[in-house]
Design a protein around this nucleic acid. Structure first.
Length: 544
DNA sequence: TTAGGGTTAG
């Protein structure tokens, strides 16, 4: 075991200590640590992290002090672990000393160190001090916000408007409706000032998580609205797939005298993309060109709209007009070629991207692999899949694996597809993938079955993929509230016509059925035999 | 001094 450690980590002392720790031998790790002629930051951190993992906070702090005495300069990990130990011991005094040193050493704006001191203050009930630190932070991630939320929750303290906006955003990011409602309720109970900013952030919190009724409720009761409030609501509808509502709201907004800026327009473009509304998308494009600066984000949204509505060459023309393309613009265009089955063009654009100073990311590689899959370019797919880590430092995720399985399976290479699944590491491998694919297959046949979703959620839970568990549960919640029937949409002369299952309400329904019958007869007359074996067995012949 | 936006599999 020890040899393995030596081999793996070369002659780094930190690595050797980490190897002892890995096999659970913390005493040997310490013995080695004590006889080291020179104890650098790596060795110290390995040892101090080991104590922290074993929940020996006193040893953590002793070692921290020893480091300082020996003149070893702590880094972000050291401070974070030491502060965590103080939190465990509720040792505020030592924690503040550590925090002061961390600031002296230039870690005042370190996200990890910052959230650790926040956590210490929150756990010790010192929310005033926490706010001081919090206000000075340059970046605030979910951990910081969650720490603040739980701190306030424990103390029952009041936050001011700015803090409440942050809390609302944190709830939006967490997707936790209960928490969001309680923040909203808190605002009302405490009669805190509900200005347009606070209300808009509430609208956004509800809307981005699919609670559109609640979002509308807050929105309608706003005494004063602005373009941003409209933007939040429209974007919420568009991103949750309610294209029609989003587009209606855009019209309503204009009717109320607001001039849409880029956000409502980008959302409207997304809505057009979802329903294939090329004509409206085009006129929004025109509106943008006439009235606004055509920035990169807008342009990418228009490119995406054109390509998904079938106008690939327009997308390309626009793409060539962007002056400073970022990776999202490139990915959008690579995707465009992919969905239109132009795998070779997708590849040459990808290669062109690598010649710029932009690096392809996981999305670029997803787009590329799926382009190969849609074009049947098996060898290319395998080649690029195999070199994505070495060439671009992008380790394949499940998405990439699914692309490859799809690519191989479409090409009839089912055995190779299975081998690939086998080669995945155990945690995200076989059981999860097959389970997921099987579940999805069943979902296709029976999309309203909540039970299948809990099956999928269990698979994720077994693989300890808590983010995925949460997103499946979110879908279940949404489904529980309202089942949205499947439908298809077609654009005729700039007007959209939607058709639901069993829906006979269209004013030309009879004509359409007659035409379908006619086409069916003509097809059979020239020898077409419909394939029905893949369709569900419970349907009778004619429905098939 | 806090609020809304573009790409990623099947």
């Amino acid at each position: 075991m020890l040899l393995t450690g030596l081999f793996k980590h070369g002659n780094s002392n930190g690595g050797l200590i980490a190897s002892y720790v890995k096999i659970g031998d913390i005493k040997s790790a310490r013995k080695l640590f004590d006889v080291l002629p020179q104890r650098g930051i790596d060795a110290c951190n390995a040892m101090i992290i080991a104590y922290s993992r074993k929940e020996y906070p006193v040893e953590v702090l002793n070692l921290y002090r020893q480091m300082i005495l020996e003149g070893v300069r702590p880094d972000s990990s050291t401070f974070t672990v030491a502060l965590k130990a103080c939190t465990r011991l509720l040792d505020l005094k030592t924690g503040e000393e550590i925090w002061c040193r961390a600031m002296d050493c230039g870690f005042e704006y370190d996200l990890f160190v910052g959230s650790s001191i926040l956590n210490l203050y929150a756990k010790c009930g010192k929310m005033d001090e926490a706010i001081v630190v919090f206000d000075r932070m340059l970046r605030r991630d979910l951990v910081c916000w969650t720490t603040m939320i739980s701190g306030f929750a424990q103390r029952g303290m009041e936050g001011d408007g700015v803090v409440m906006v942050g809390l609302t955003q944190a709830c939006a990011n967490l997707g936790d409706l209960k928490l969001g409602l309680s923040v909203h309720g808190y605002l009302i109970r405490k009669d805190l000032r509900m200005d347009v900013v606070v209300q808009t952030s509430l609208v956004d919190m509800y809307a981005t998580n699919g609670h559109l009724k609640l979002a509308c409720h807050v929105f309608k009761n706003m005494p004063y609205k602005n373009v941003i409030s409209w933007g939040a609501l429209i974007s919420g509808f568009a991103q949750n797939g309610f294209a029609g509502n989003a587009l209606d709201l855009l019209v309503e907004m204009q009717g109320c005298g607001y001039r849409p800026d880029l956000v409502p327009l980008v959302s409207a473009l997304l809505a057009c993309t979802q329903v294939g509304f090329l004509k409206l998308g085009k006129s929004i494009h025109g509106y943008i060109v006439r009235r606004l600066d055509f920035d990169r984000v807008l342009c990418t949204a228009v490119i995406d709209m054109y390509s998904k509505c079938g106008a690939l060459s327009w997308a390309r023309t626009l793409f060539d007009q962007i002056n400073s393309k970022d990776s999202i613009s490139w990915n959008a265009m690579i995707t465009s070629y992919g969905i239109h089955g132009h795998g070779k063009e997708a590849l040459s654009l990808f290669l062109e991207m690598t010649k710029t100073n932009l690096k392809p990311n996981h999305a670029s590689l997803s787009s590329l692999l799926s382009a190969f899959s849609h074009s049947g370019l098996v060898e290319e797919g395998q080649y690029w899949f195999n070199c994505m880590v070495s060439e671009y430092k992008v380790p394949p995720t499940e998405k990439h694996y699914v692309c490859m399985v799809d690519l191989l399976a479409r090409a009839g290479q089912v055995e190779e597809a299975c081998e690939l699944i086998d080669s995945m590491n155990a945690e995200s491998g076989l059981a999860l993938l097959i389970g997921e694919m099987a579940a999805k297959k069943v979902l296709e046949l029976n999309p309203d079955d909540l039970g299948i979703y809990s099956l999928v959620s269990n698979y994720y839970a077994k693989a300890r993929k808590w983010d995925d568990v949460a997103s499946v549960r979110k879908i279940m919640k949404k489904m529980g509230m309202k089942k949205v029937p499947g439908y298809s949409v077609v654009e005729v002369k700039g007007k959209l016509h939607a058709f639901l299952m069993e829906d006979k309400s269209h004013h030309q329904y009879e004509n359409m059925m007659q035409l379908l019958d006619k086409l069916d007869h003509e097809m059979r007359a020239i020898g077409y035999v419909p394939k029905t074996e893949f369709v569900l067995h419970s349907l009778d012949e004619e429905v098939k």
